[in-house]
Write a protein that binds this DNA or RNA. Structure first.
Length: 204
DNA sequence: CAGTCGATGTACT
DNA sequence: GTACATCGACTGG
């Protein structure tokens, strides 16, 4: 299928906020042997070395975040809270520490594989509605840190185009600094977004 | 429904 | 020691 071509590297070599917004509606695809796991990205957050105290890259390059400083189009996976992984899409040119966190997806293919990893009795709505849940459902861990998204194993493909009136911008989740930055993007009314504490997501 | 809290590796003060 | 781009179990109303 033509739409299942990986997004070109030039897609990622753009301003991070634009990449974040345009990732909404695209398909994250992982092929493991003959099996395919896929999800539609419905919620993301942008992180940048400039003016963003909450970004891992804010204080410069370290062993953990060095992938953020590589060229756009790679996967940045980090370990947090002693038990969870989160995945990001690296953006912009080599030397710029920026990335987009994938916070939630809508399961499209490989539901049974996701349930095998997440739990046999987890409902479809709860498989990938959080950044660490996405990694667990897709089997993403530190072994995928730094891999290319041009495939063949892991790719992001064009999906449904999301018009501006269906994109919600808001503050990011789970951070204590730079709360004024409206760098969280989600598809309005989509039921597969994460459900953090605080004001409930009512689609707006 | 909301709020609290434990798990537990890594980075940073 | 403390904080952390989280999750899920548990508590009380």
């Amino acid at each position: 299928m033509d739409s299942l071509q990986p997004l070109p590297e030039t897609f990622y070599l753009r301003p991070t906020l634009k990449v974040a917004r345009d990732l909404l509606g695209t398909l994250f695809v992982r092929k493991i042997g003959n099996n395919i796991i896929a999800g539609r990205i419905v919620e993301v957050e942008a992180y940048h070395e400039n003016g963003d105290e909450s970004s891992h890259s804010y204080r410069g390059c370290t062993p953990r975040n060095e992938v953020m400083f590589r060229r756009g189009g790679l996967l940045y996976v980090y370990f947090t809270y002693g038990m969870h992984f989160c995945m990001n899409v690296v953006t912009e040119k080599e030397g710029t520490g920026a990335a987009v966190l994938i916070r939630a997806m809508e399961p499209i293919a490989g539901i049974e594989l996701m349930q095998h990893r997440r739990g046999e009795f987890i409902s479809r709505i709860d498989l990938t509605n959080g950044p660490a849940k996405c990694c667990q459902a897709f089997g993403i861990d530190k072994r995928q840190n730094g891999i290319s998204l041009q495939g063949p194993g892991e790719t992001i493909c064009r999906g449904e185009k999301i018009s501006d009136d269906r994109v919600l911008k808001s503050s990011r989740i789970g951070i204590r600094r730079s709360t004024e930055l409206q760098w969280r993007f989600r598809i309005a009314g989509n039921p597969f977004i994460s459900k953090p504490p605080g004001p409930v997501n009512r689609g707006l």
